[in-house]
């Protein structure tokens, strides 16, 4: 079964969850599907999933009637996950639950780490995990939203000897991708539903809607839970423009030294200042005083008023 406790113990960091590795997957050639859930929403984690089974069992997997998870209701997905679990003698899965806090802080990092890079690295990490666990991966199928060709080249290069197929909508084309999609979506739904706010907010209204920025329920929730200083709890992805726009218009302004507008100017200013203090020797007779570097190193200066 899927146990989300390790993630819920600390939902500010990402977490890997995995099924037992079926013995047959260590001895027989396997296919492996990769899919993601919750890429678009402004709320909650994004979940990356892989599912794998012997190539010989592909038809059996198909017979479980796993289809693209997006076309299913939540109950249907839970039901299908149940079926996958019952097939654990030959089907295995692994998930990376990417905490919304990790998504925010990565995307807003000084050296920006965009969602595509994060997605690719996560997928690569999961495939490597399967290999490290002894799964005889021979074929990999990946669902993608970005340009498929480049991604396919990248993966083929990274995993020589594995036949990689990257396709948009792969989840409706390959059963093993559909299965990965179901695992990811089930985990994402559960993580959102059972989200434990580490912030001390008392009772939190859980009527988030779908979490997609254009969902009126999600919008209403974002308006209701906007704090003028802190913005949002870590449940919200701060890097989404929806959240940024709301904070800009309804919250107090916050400025960082690497802000595009403020920061560059400030850096320039500081540069000029230090250039001056180092190199412009005071002209003869001119009344200038250079503060000793003990103070400038420590950002200490005299005041002339409080």
């Amino acid at each position: 079964m899927m146990d989300l406790n390790p993630f819920e113990a600390d939902n500010s960091v990402s977490c890997r969850l995995a099924s037992q590795i079926p013995e047959v997957c260590r001895t027989e050639d396997c296919c492996l599907g990769v899919d993601e859930a919750g890429r678009g929403p402004v709320l909650g984690p994004m979940v990356y999933g892989i599912c794998f089974c012997p190539i010989s069992k592909n038809q059996e997997l198909k017979d479980l009637k796993v289809a693209d998870s997006k076309t299913l209701t939540e109950a249907e997905r839970e039901n299908l996950f149940q079926k996958l679990d019952e097939a654990k003698s030959y089907v295995g899965w692994a998930l990376d639950v990417l905490s919304p806090n990790v998504i925010s802080t990565s995307m807003l990092q000084r050296t920006k780490y965009n969602l595509n890079a994060l997605s690719h690295d996560t997928a690569i990490g999961l495939i490597q995990f399967a290999l490290d666990s002894g799964v005889q991966v021979k074929e990999v199928f990946v669902d993608t939203v970005g340009p498929a060709e480049k991604y396919e080249q990248k993966l083929s290069h990274l995993f020589p000897g594995i036949e990689v197929t990257v396709r948009p909508k792969a989840d409706s084309l390959f059963p093993v991708v559909s299965a990965a999609s179901i695992c990811a979506k089930v985990a994402r739904d559960r993580a959102v539903e059972r989200w434990k706010f580490t912030e001390n907010l008392g009772e939190v209204d859980t009527d988030y809607g779908s979490g997609y920025p254009n969902d009126p329920k999600t919008k209403a929730w974002l308006l209701k839970y906007l704090d003028p200083v802190f913005g949002y709890p870590q449940f919200v992805r701060f890097s989404w423009s929806t959240a940024q726009t709301l904070m800009d218009s309804q919250g107090v302004s916050v400025h960082w030294d690497d802000d595009e507008e403020d920061g560059e100017k400030a850096a320039k200013r500081q540069n000029n200042r230090s250039m001056l203090s180092y190199f412009s020797a005071p002209a003869e007779g001119e009344k200038t005083h250079q503060t000793h570097r003990f103070f400038t190193d420590r950002r200490l200066k005299s005041l002339n008023s409080l």
């Binding site: 806090n101 912030e199 001390n200 200083v229 802190f230 913005g231 701060f238 890097s239």
Partner: peptide, 26 residues
């Protein structure tokens, strides 16, 4: 400002350092 509710409550103590996020920044 709700410092204890948002900031203190989510601050984590490691051996050498503390970590927290503010406005989505680490």
């Amino acid at each position: 400002a709700q410092v204890s509710q948002y900031f203190t409550a989510t601050t984590k103590d490691h051996k050498q350092e503390k970590t927290v996020s503010f406005r989505g920044r680490g």
